[in-house]
């Protein structure tokens, strides 16, 4: 298995000694600070009454902060930032699918809610709303 493992690699990343340790400590502090800010915002939404639109704005901020955390974990801890650009692209480009994935499904959920609210029970399965009113033939469905 390891016969050619060395020859696959053209050049090794420098281990980077103390400089790297400093970078790790810096990233750790950054991740902790971002987490504390996120918690602060989450608790603020609970502790202080606020308008729904402002709440939504704070949630958006928390999402962006989480993406920043993900960027630092992948880029520094997982060393993806040190790899060749082509490798980075083969990992990151497929993830663009998430843009459609998230948008489409959340809109679908929202539309589901709106339909149910506006059309009332007409889209709820019939046998659950009024079993007594059903003619016997409805049982066959």
């Amino acid at each position: 298995m390891e016969h050619s493992a060395g020859s696959e690699i053209t050049f090794h990343h420098e281990a980077g000694g103390d400089e790297f340790i400093k970078k790790v400590i810096k990233t750790t502090i950054l991740l902790s600070v971002i987490t504390i800010i996120e918690l602060g915002l989450g608790l603020a939404m609970y502790a202080f009454p606020m308008a729904d639109t402002f709440k939504l704005f704070l949630k958006g901020v928390i999402v962006i902060l989480s993406l920043a955390k993900a960027f630092y974990i992948v880029g520094i801890f997982m060393h993806l930032g040190d790899e060749l650009k082509n490798l980075i692209m083969t990992i990151c480009v497929p993830l663009i699918l998430f843009v459609w994935f998230i948008a489409a499904f959340l809109m679908d959920g929202n539309s589901w809610k709106n339909l149910r609210n506006s059309r009332g029970k007409s889209i709820v399965p019939v046998e659950k709303t009024a079993p007594a009113a059903q003619p016997a033939s409805a049982e066959k469905h």
Binding site: E8, I9, T10, E83
Partner: peptide, 13 residues
Amino acid sequence: WWSGGKSPFNVEY
């Protein structure tokens, strides 16, 4: 990188 004999992504399999 793509001339063969090495990993074009410079990482092991």
